[in-house]
């Protein structure tokens, strides 16, 4: 029944994927080396950090929220991890502590938003500054580079598993887990319900505050993971790392077709959205487009994609 509707729905769902495929075809025609295995891995590795953050952002946006503090969380968690390691703490433990720190930063966002009743945009705008400030305080404004040599830590950002860059492996593992969480768990159900109608969810006996704190904690942890990968890659924690990363993450979510008003969207779309941004960056580089123009093109593509999406809804 109702074939028109479901066909339209399907089109809406594969729209971002079609866009990505089109983009790849065009770039390959313009520069055949785009499709080399080497370059593909390269793109995926560049995408992985943004994708991890954007996965978390998808959960947040599905509840009708937003998290602007992800870039600062990334920096602070990365700096803490590097600091712990240079202080002699076991690298694996240091990384776990870094993840925990990220989760706590996210939980703080969640508590301010739910218990403090501050709008997510404002709350995370404030914590974006706070976390960045704490990073500068902790690092004294200088990079932390005296990280001892360690295999596990090096693996995170620079390693390979069967020729696949390890950050890409991490990204896909996170994708599979998060896809499952969103689709198959009561928590995932709650995320969609809260974003679709918060009041009805509360009156249905869902723990709305708990769900919200959960999504921000998850995003904090994923941002920390991205921070650890970035720190490992550079083998140095930069106090200004992750600046403006929130925008790329939000762009990936929106490009993937997730509604900013909450309740509608999917994590596969976010993966595609992150890839579109990554492919665009990489392709424009290969085509020797000056970096100033790259920004213009990227912004225009985001605008176009979202406008097409709105048209489909109307």
């Amino acid at each position: 029944m109702n074939n028109g509707g479901s066909f339209k729905g399907t089109l809406q769902k594969i729209g971002p994927l079609l866009g990505l495929v089109l983009l790849v075809i065009v770039l390959t025609m313009l520069n055949p080396s785009f499709l080399s295995l080497n370059n593909i891995f390269n793109v995926f590795r560049q995408v992985s950090i943004n994708a991890l953050i954007a996965f978390g952002m998808t959960f947040v946006i599905l509840t009708g929220g937003i998290d602007l503090s992800v870039g600062s969380t990334l920096a602070l968690a990365g700096a803490l991890t590097a600091g712990f390691m240079s202080g002699g703490i076991d690298p694996v433990l240091a990384m776990l502590l870094g993840l925990l720190a990220g989760a706590l930063m996210g939980a703080f966002n969640g508590v301010v938003i739910t218990k403090g009743k501050v709008a997510p945009f404002i709350a995370t705008l404030a914590t974006m500054t706070i976390f960045r400030g704490l990073t500068l305080v902790y690092t004294d404004g200088r990079p932390i580079s005296d990280i001892p040599q360690n295999f596990s830590f090096e693996m995170m950002g620079q390693g390979y598993l069967f020729m696949i860059p390890f950050p890409v492996v991490t990204m896909f593992a996170a994708y599979v887990i998060l896809y499952f969480v969103l689709k198959k768990t009561t928590f995932g159900r709650g995320v969609y319900a809260v974003g679709g109608n918060e009041e009805a969810s509360r009156l249905s006996g869902l723990r709305v505050d708990g769900i919200k704190i959960g999504v921000y904690s998850l995003t904090g942890m994923l941002s920390a993971l991205a921070g650890i990968i970035l720190t490992s890659r550079l083998y140095s924690a930069q106090p200004t790392a992750g600046t403006m990363y929130e925008l790329d993450a939000i762009a990936a979510v929106v490009l993937g077709g997730t509604s900013l008003t909450g309740g509608r969207g999917w994590i596969f779309g976010t993966l595609v959205g992150a890839l579109i941004i990554g492919v665009l960056n990489n392709g424009l580089n290969l085509l020797n487009v000056a970096s100033f123009y790259q920004q213009v093109v990227k912004g225009a593509v985001i605008l176009l994609a979202v406008m097409l999406d709105r048209k489909k809804e109307a």
């Binding site: 159900r189 709650g190 969609y192 319900a193 679709g196 109608n197 009805a200 009156l203 249905s204 309740g263």
Partner: peptide, 18 residues
């Protein structure tokens, strides 16, 4: 207050019974 209109019959009925 009662329904999540954008979700399906299945998801709405399940909401109180997760």
């Amino acid at each position: 207050e009662g329904l999540v209109l954008n979700l399906s019959v299945r998801e709405n009925l399940a909401l109180t019974n997760l």
